[in-house]
């Protein structure tokens, strides 16, 4: 089922603009993540798609060819996984999963069959008759997913589905969730503020900021070709290299850098993993901090840009604090963001 949003916007009664007019398209079977910091409008967008929030007049939400803008949530046939899961504590796992099917007034035999199918898919067989309170966080998440998926929704919506879990569990469950969503083969939209989560699960990521979608694309494209400063900073924590651009060179405080192409009207960004400490590097910097993180050292460098530039240094030893080092950056790793007519 395709999802098409046309000039969807939301202004709260107190005047807060949660979502500026947005156009958005999700192809059938596609898993799309809405990524952004808190307050960027991603949850509002999801809740408008769900029908839990009424958009401003003039907005249009379509599932396939069906205009659902005016439909209340209970008639939209969407599946929703809530941040807190919202599992019904008065029902067993089975009761929760069967609830949506019961609302469709399906015959009991059909309900049982579908519940069994979804339970198998989500590997919940040992827990079907348990109470919700007797489940672990990860099991609850699977029940929430199974419950949302069982009534064969047109679109599956997930609101920060991993944020209620312990950090230790989150990575494993993230991969598990990605696997399950692929198995379901359903159009899915999910909200997260964690870029790793977005990249690991989604086919396509929509980065949001201040109530607008700033860039949509596959994870690789967002990472390698961010089109705005915000995307560069939010996805992969790229740091702005300040200096004067002249043709294909950038003059920083610490020395000259070669750009991959003509950088007129561009700002230059770089990520910590692309900043290398080499004896004959083109730039000069001073080590301000050095933290050992197991796989690498994280060095904070001054003297190149106004703030601190970080370098992930993979060597067996790191230069001491206060020493001067030489830095090199592969020109192909530099991110050039065109500022002519750009959005923030």
């Amino acid at each position: 089922m395709t999802l098409t949003l046309t000039s969807v916007s939301k202004t709260y009664p107190d005047g807060t603009v949660a979502l500026k007019p947005t156009d958005f398209h999700v192809a059938p079977g596609e898993i799309v993540s809405l990524l952004g910091p808190s307050g960027c409008g991603k949850t509002t967008l999801l809740r408008i798609v769900a029908g839990l929030e009424t958009p401003n007049p003039g907005s249009q939400v379509k599932f396939g060819d069906d205009d659902v803008t005016e439909l209340p949530v209970e008639r939209r046939k969407v599946g929703m996984v809530f941040q807190s899961y919202a599992l019904f504590p008065n029902m067993s796992v089975r009761g929760n999963i069967a609830y949506g099917l019961k609302m469709q007034k399906l015959p009991a035999a059909e309900i049982d069959q579908r519940v069994a199918e979804v339970v198998r898919l989500c590997k919940l067989e040992p827990y079907v008759d348990r109470r919700i309170t007797a489940l672990s966080g990860g099991q609850r998440q699977r029940v929430a997913l199974a419950r949302a998926f069982a009534p064969r929704p047109r679109i599956l919506l997930l609101d920060e589905p991993l944020s209620a879990l312990d950090a230790a569990l989150r990575d494993t469950l993230r991969d598990e969730l990605a696997g399950l969503l692929r198995k379901f083969g359903i159009t899915a939209l999910f909200v997260t503020h964690d870029q790793d989560e977005a990249m690991a699960i989604a086919d396509k990521v929509a980065v949001m900021s201040h109530g607008t979608v700033v860039q949509v694309g596959p994870p690789e494209e967002l990472y390698r070709n961010p089109r705005t400063r915000f995307v560069a900073g939010f996805v992969g924590h790229a740091v702005h290299l300040e200096g004067q651009v002249a043709g294909t060179t950038l003059r920083t405080q610490g020395g000259m850098l070669t750009l991959p192409r003509d950088g007129e009207n561009c700002e230059v960004f770089v990520r910590a993993e692309d900043v290398a400490i080499t004896p004959n590097g083109a730039l000069k910097a001073r080590v301000e901090s050095s933290v050992f993180l197991g796989t690498h050292y994280r060095l904070g460098l001054s003297g190149i840009t106004a703030g601190i530039l970080y370098s992930n240094h993979a060597g067996l030893a790191a230069p001491a604090r206060g020493t001067d080092v030489r830095i090199s950056i592969d020109p192909s790793k530099l991110l050039l963001i065109d500022q002519s007519g750009a959005t923030p």
Partner: peptide, 29 residues
């Protein structure tokens, strides 16, 4: 003390009307 709003949204997203939510979610809990 319970997160009534979210529980109800959960039921609504599964197709339950106001009346059903009252009987299936609110009263038992």
């Amino acid at each position: 003390v319970m997160d009534l709003k979210t529980l109800e949204e959960g039921a609504a997203s599964l197709g339950a009307t106001s009346w059903r939510r009252f009987w299936d979610i609110v009263v038992p809990n």
